[in-house]
């Protein structure tokens, strides 16, 4: 029962957030200087031409009516057609989404499988002999650099290096995963690596802090006192208890990665959602921008729900059914 009301609450608040986001983005794209007609027809078009175009796409109606039309259509799964390409937005997004998803998933996996072990290592070393040594300083510098280096800087460097010199991987040449897995991975490796630098650094840092907090817990001492091996203590007790903050961070990072993917897709010429939406913003292709932003918001909401559930499974004190109950 508690679980049911929790689901209901989360679903309602998620839906409310989506409606709010859609309203905001609807207003925002229309508030941008230079409308669709100006962008398409250029500065020398006549008033009649502009009016005609606006009428064709319903842009002459009031924003309220436009939103209502869009909203009712969106409820039935129709996100409109691109005013530039005349293609349905839903289908276009669906075909491009796998690229962005793959990019983000690869970066998140790198964060989990590289960042988490690095963080654990840093925490365990910080408590042991040689703490504050050269290794720790180098690690902290690298971490700080990784968090603060923007994708467009790192990405440009990588693109330049790999285009200028034969380093085994080439830039561009995307093929879908289903058609040619090896070729796909060869094309995706570099952009995913660029995207993952921030995720790895942030994850390593959060993991380190979380593990340091767990290391001082009495149950860790108790496990050591029972003669458990360091590896067993890490796996059975430390990782489980340090996981919640890391998982929450990974959710936030994945939202950030969706943003970073825009730049990386642009740089590496990948047919993903990010580059699609950026082009659409430039051309004032309203329907595309709306749907793209809505998709990102929906993903983020779903991810948050999933993480809340997983965190509750790991630590029953934080469980969704015990939320707000103090014991």
């Amino acid at each position: 029962m508690r679980l049911f009301t929790w689901w209901l609450r989360r679903a309602l608040s998620g839906a409310g957030t989506l409606v709010g986001v859609s309203i905001l983005i609807f207003i925002a794209v229309r508030a941008m200087p230079g409308g669709f007609a100006e962008t398409i027809l250029g500065p020398f078009a006549t008033e009649e031409q502009r009016a005609e175009l606006a009428e064709r796409y319903g842009l002459d109606q009031s924003v309220l009516v436009q939103y209502w039309n869009w909203f009712t259509a969106a409820l039935s799964g129709d996100f409109g057609t691109s005013m530039v390409s005349q293609q349905p937005v839903g289908a276009e997004l669906a075909s491009r989404f796998p690229v962005t998803a793959q990019l983000t998933v690869m970066a998140i996996l790198a964060a989990a499988f590289i960042g988490v072990p690095l963080g654990v290592l840093a925490a365990v070393r910080a408590g042991g002999p040689g703490a504050g040594g050269r290794g720790a300083v180098v690690g902290r510098l690298a971490g700080g650099l990784g968090v603060s280096l923007p994708e467009f800087v790192l990405g440009s460097i990588v693109v330049y290096l790999f285009s200028r010199y034969a380093l085994g991987l080439s830039v561009g040449g995307y093929v879908p995963l289903g058609d040619d897995p090896v070729g796909n991975l060869r094309a995706m490796l570099l952009p995913a690596a660029v995207l993952s630098v921030f995720a790895i650094s942030a994850t390593a840092r959060t993991t380190r802090d979380a593990v340091l907090n767990v290391l001082v817990e009495p149950y860790v001492t108790a496990a050591v006192a029972r003669g458990e091996t360091p590896w067993a203590v890490i796996r059975q007790h430390i990782l489980r208890n340090a996981a919640p903050p890391v998982l929450v961070l990974l959710t936030t990072v994945s939202a950030y990665l969706l943003g970073g993917a825009i730049i990386v897709e642009y740089l590496f010429n990948l047919p993903g959602v990010g580059s699609y939406v950026v082009h659409a913003v430039g051309r004032r292709d309203y329907a595309v921008v709306q749907a793209g932003v809505l998709l990102a918001a929906a993903l983020f909401i779903v991810l948050n729900v999933v993480v809340d559930l997983v965190v509750g499974l790991i630590d029953p004190r934080l469980g969704v059914t015990t939320a707000g109950r103090r014991t």
Binding site: E217, Y219, T221, V224, A225, G227, Q236, P316
Partner: peptide, 24 residues
């Protein structure tokens, strides 16, 4: 040392709930 802890030594600590892993 681990074997000694495992086979010959037992510890009971001050904070009983804290000495148990909350996730298990």
């Amino acid at each position: 040392l681990r074997q000694l802890r495992r086979d010959q030594l037992g510890f009971v600590f001050q904070d009983p709930i804290g000495a148990l892993d909350p996730t298990m």
